[in-house]
Simulated scan of single mutants.
Amino acid sequence: MDKSAVTGATTNTATWIGFAAVLMWALLAILTAASGAVPPFQLNALSFAVGTAVGFLWMAMTGRWRDLVQPLRVWALGVVGLFGYHALYFTALRNAPPIEAGLIAYLWPLLIVIFSAALPGERLRWFHIAGGLLGFLGAALIVTRGASLSFEARHGAGYLAAVACALTWSSYSVLSRRNATVPTGAVVGFCAAAALLSVPFHLALETTVWPRGGGEWAAVLGLGLMPVGAAFYVWDIGVKRGNIQLLGVLSYAAPLLSTVILILFGYGVFTWQVAAAALLITLGALTASRALRIPTRSGKEASAGR
């Protein structure tokens, strides 16, 4: 069998494994809404604690504890990526209007596409950029709901936090590709650190509010099992071994699917903006997916040698 074909199949599989994280992140809004009045950093601590517990259980079953033994630079990247992103996101929403802050923060998929050009062996092509821009336009319609934007200087700190938020997650994702030899089990440690670091922020900035009833506790458990748990593990596989440009564009499906789920559960209404966003994001994904149909350079060379 052609080695390039095997490599391509492996890359495509890893890409779709990474896309599972996008599907899980689509549940973030509905599960957060169902978790009641638990403040953000407390919810962060609880959710990451659940995600960590699942990871530790897996490590105990497989005996992969050595995955946690990593250089300081790897730990720094993981902790800044997971905890830093969430801390900056919450800071942005506290200091700027949610619509503007959310839109800026959602630059991260497009930044992943652009930053990937600096990775060894990666080529940034026109359809990656075009797909990313179409996806961003679709996300903009979802986040703004067609409302006019008003960027005011007094919210500058919030806007800067949102920019830092987008830069943090995109940089974490792309730099993870450079650390492709680091096992995904290390992410369990990053989740544990994020849970622990959320506690002092909660105690300093928030009033403790515990979930009420089984439904709210189930939502917290769901957050920890999927969007604030397993999602980070499969995302790690996707960005390290998959098509990172396509994965970046596909990430714009998260706000669309999240909105559709909210509508289905009665938290929103279907509008023309949702329909237009669905069209733009789908077009963006289809445009970027050209990468799956174009043979690699090694594949072309192998064909020429026959």
Rank of each mutant, 00 (worst) to 15 (best):
P200N: 09
Y172M: 05
L221W: 04
A277H: 02
T168R: 04
T259I: 04
A275Q: 07
V260L: 15
V274P: 00
T296L: 03
R293A: 12
A277F: 03
E216W: 07
G248H: 00
W169S: 09
L175G: 07
I261S: 11
A230S: 15
T181C: 05
T208M: 12
S258H: 04
L197C: 09
T282V: 06
I261A: 11
I244G: 02
I244P: 01
V239N: 05
C191N: 14
S176R: 01
L225E: 13
A285S: 14
P295E: 08
L167M: 14
G268N: 08
S173D: 02
T207G: 14
T296Y: 00
S171I: 05
A278P: 15
G224S: 14
T282L: 07
P200L: 06
L292K: 03
L221Q: 01
S258V: 02
S251R: 07
L286P: 00
L221N: 02
A285T: 10
P295H: 11
Y252C: 10
R241T: 05
S170I: 08
T207E: 11
G189K: 14
V199Q: 10
R297A: 12
A253P: 06
Y233K: 12
P227N: 09
I237W: 04
G238Y: 15
P295Q: 09
L203M: 11
L197S: 06
S298N: 06
T181N: 14
A230I: 13
V187S: 06
F232D: 04
T168C: 14
L223F: 02
G185Y: 13
G215S: 06
I263A: 13
